[in-house]
Amino acid sequence: MIINGVTIDETFAEAFPMKATRLIITAHNAKWAMISAQAFTGFATSVIACGCEAGIERELDGNETPDGRPGVAVLIFAMGGKGLAKQVETRSGQCVLTSPTSALFSGLDGEKDMPLGQNLRYFGDGFQISKMIDGKRYWRIPVMDGEFLTQEKTGVTAAVGGGNFLVLAESQGQALAACEAAIEEMRKIPNVIMPFPGGVVRSGSKVGSKYKALNASTNDAFCPTLKGQTKSELPPECESVMEIVIDGLTKEDIDEAMKVGIQAVCGLGAAQGIRRISAGNYGGKLGPFHFHLQEIMA
């Protein structure tokens, strides 16, 4: 398959089941809601070492948030419910509770609940106040700038993590420009995040390493400087590869995000130095979710 001179490889991205929740962070204004959300989603690019993958889904205006203030919706994914609960608790406690004027709400009614402010309330040292409003429990925790308001629980849902595609370009600048164009379009899709810095990862990994202590190492088949040293997947004219990783609440959400992302990349086309779109997989034996590039773009 070739779109605007860009070859779409006959391959697939391989993704895994995860657990996820959506949180809504509000604040006195959009600036501080974003600051709090950025802190919450910091160091959350990959479950390999971060314990979770998190990102900003979108900004919300006052009529979309529970307390009528500007807010930000964030999605956070982990490999299991326990790990997710731990990450939500520590990040909420250190990054949202601490953030001036913030409030924290559940943004998802999942199959199950997990604690949100349920344990954060103890920071109130006995001065915390519970309020049941419309069947949901909230905690009012006294803090130095007033009160921190948080919902007691948030929903947990089954989700999918690790959808991806690779952009093979003639130069580093062209790969980056293509990925930026893709991310701009993909951020318009609900229920997905691209957890790496700016949505783009330049150090894609393969499973395993020559070093026993490491579970993952550089994806040498797509490293342009190794074209003459390893079994390379790259054509001679390709000088840079970047990857976009997508986590979504459902497989369909990731399908849609990959489609608009690849469309944006192909929109630049061969004329802008984009040669191929490929994807990362492990032979189809590890992850139950397969995203076939040509099927998505058909």
Partner: peptide
């Protein structure tokens, strides 16, 4: 005197 964030939620209910 204070601005309490839970009140708008309560009035909305």
């Amino acid at each position: 005197s204070h601005t309490l964030a839970f009140l708008p939620l309560m009035f909305a209910s």
